[in-house]
Design a protein around this nucleic acid. Structure first.
Lengths: 155, 155
DNA sequence: GTCGCGATTGAGAATCAGTCTCAACCGCCT
DNA sequence: AGGCGGTTGAGACTGATTCTCAATCGCGAC
């Protein structure tokens, strides 16, 4: 996804490309996969780009509306929500480590197929989906098994 | 899921079964599948059960921690979050109508299998997952196709 | 190049969901 | 019945997000 795409979107919807929108979007592209609003705010501030909170939220709102961004729940109890830059059309899913919060994005045709199938069974016309798999990453598995060696019962 | 189960959980964790907790949990059982905090608050108030906001949130927090409840994002842009009563162990998924917000819960072994497989491919040890399929329910499909008959191009 | 209009912005106020505080209260064990 | 510690309620508090509105900017028209 590029600046061009963003500009196209703005134009299509009779919106203006402003300095602020450009900077916010550039920063999102740099952040790649996923980020939270605080990080974005903080990084822009670090670069002396004094864009107001309101503008950042407004821009994120735009991106969400046009599907250039989506929100994702990154813990089973719904605690944290990150924004997740999302290449158009592609419903990318996340593999989230429940311990360290590491997120791996992936894109499996099988998931889309399954969703379409399930929706079809209920007479629904599928549009998109959102799958988060909560699991322990290799590093955290090691850490955990070590700890369990010491105290074998749960704390 | 029943009151018994809840009592077991409380006991296991050295927590007391109070009038308030019982009433909140009863109401959640009545609400079945999914609900939001406002609905719960409102319904309890309707019944003259003047349970404070704080207590309700505290109880929900408990249920979340012990996995008797989970949070679910019910729109692609992450707008609404519902609590979703969740029978133990079973990771149930949702089919959500993007138009009217109707939610259908389902439970497909194939989804779990796929998640386990994907996690495995990345060396992750799967624990749970959360899948929401966003689609148009039959009723809303009809409504939409009618509208499109009148104005065939996008608004 | 510059004019003008409507869209956009910034600063801070407002809102709102959720959390915290702490004294009063209650469940449960003895 | 008595007492301890967990639980509750009311409302203050917090922090994220949205709103307000005057000042500013982007961009098409001239």
């Amino acid at each position: 996804m590029s600046q061009q795409l963003f500009e196209q979107f703005l134009e299509q919807h009779c919106l203006k490309m402003t300095q602020q929108r450009r900077e916010i979007y550039e920063e999102i592209l740099k952040l790649e996969d996923h980020f939270d609003v605080d990080t974005l705010l903080w990084r822009l501030k670090q670069q002396g780009k004094a864009i107001s909170k309101a503008t950042i939220y407004r821009t994120l709102q735009l991106l969400l509306e046009y599907g250039l961004l989506k929100k994702t729940q990154v813990s089973p109890d719904g605690a944290e929500i990150l924004y997740d830059a999302c290449p158009e059309g592609c419903a990318s899913d996340n593999l989230v480590c429940t311990e360290c919060g590491k997120v791996i994005r992936f894109n499996k045709a099988a998931v889309c197929q399954l969703c379409t199938e399930i929706a079809g069974q209920h007479g629904f016309a599928p549009s998109s989906h959102c799958l988060n798999i909560f699991a322990l990453c290799p590093a955290c598995q090691q850490a955990t098994s070590k700890t369990q060696g010491e105290q074998h019962e749960k704390a």
